[in-house]
Amino acid sequence: MALDRWFRRKKPNRKDDDKSPSGLWIKCDSCENQVYRKDIIANLHLCPDCNHHYRMPVDDRMEMLIDEDSFEQWSGTIGPVDPLGFVDLKTYPERIKAAQDSHKYPDAILTGAGLLDNQRVAIAIMDFSFNGGSMGSVVGEEIARAAERAAEEERAFITVAASGGARMQEGALSLMQMAKTTMSLAALASKRLPFISILTDPTSGGTTASFATLGDIIVAEPKALIAFAGPRVIEQTIKQELPEGFQRSEFLLNNGMLDDVINRKELKQKISKYINLLLANRTTIKVKHVPAI
C-alpha cells in the first residue's frame, strides 16, 4: 500500500514525497533550527544540530555502505509494465513515466555487488521517493535475483528497506512479490550466508510483511516508521489517536521486534562487525551431520 499518501496529508505543506532537504536553508523537521541544506547532505543527510535522520537517496546510501569504487550494479536491466491497464486518478504508465523522468533508475530499487569493509556483499536498496518505494514486479524480481545471485557468489546479503508496501497498480502480482522475495532467501540460508535487513523511514505494508523482517539480523535507523498497517489505517479502525512514538524504531525494539537501533553514522561499521562475526566460524567448524532416526 502506498502509505506515502497518508503521510503527505498530515503535512500538507510538503511538496515532495522525498524527505530529503530541499532549498538553500531549511528548518529542521525535528529541532526546527535553521540549517544549511548542504551541511545536511554532507553529513549523511543527518541534521548537524540534532542528528535527525532524513531520508537518503539510493546512490548516497550505496556510497555510504559500500567501499569506494567496488560497486558493481546488477539492477536496471528491467523496467515496469502495466499488466492490468490500471487507471485511478492517473494511469499507471503516467505515474511510472513521471517517476522515471525524475529518477536515474527504472524503478524503486538499486541492487548490486561490492565490498563492505573488504567483505564481499550483495546489496538491495529501495527508493521511497520513487512511487512510495512500492514493491511491484520489478522491485520483487530485482530483490529475488540479487538474493539468488548473492547465494551463488557466496556473498552476504544486505537490504535497505524504504517502502510504503505492495504496489497497488499491479494488483495481486504485487502481492505475489511478497512470496517471491521471501522464497528467494532460502538459497542464502542453505549456504549459511548472512542476510542483514536494515529498515529505514518508512517501511510498511507488504515490504514489512515479507523479506524485510526475515533478516538473520534486523536493525533500524532511529525513529523510523516501521509498520504493517499505517497509522492512518489504524486510527480509522480504532477511532482514537495513537500514542507518541507508536510504530517507531524504538517502539519495535522495546517490543522485541528488532535486534538493534543504529545511528546512520555507525551503520556501516556495525554491519561489517555482524557479517564478520557471523561468518568467522563458517569454514572452520565442521558441520556434524546427524543421521535421521
Binding site: I78, V81, S137, E141, A144, L173, M176, Q177, A179
Partner: peptide
Amino acid sequence: RFRKLGKFQEM
C-alpha cells in the same frame, strides 16, 4: 510456481 510471477520488460 511463485518465482515466475511478475510482469516486466527488458530495458
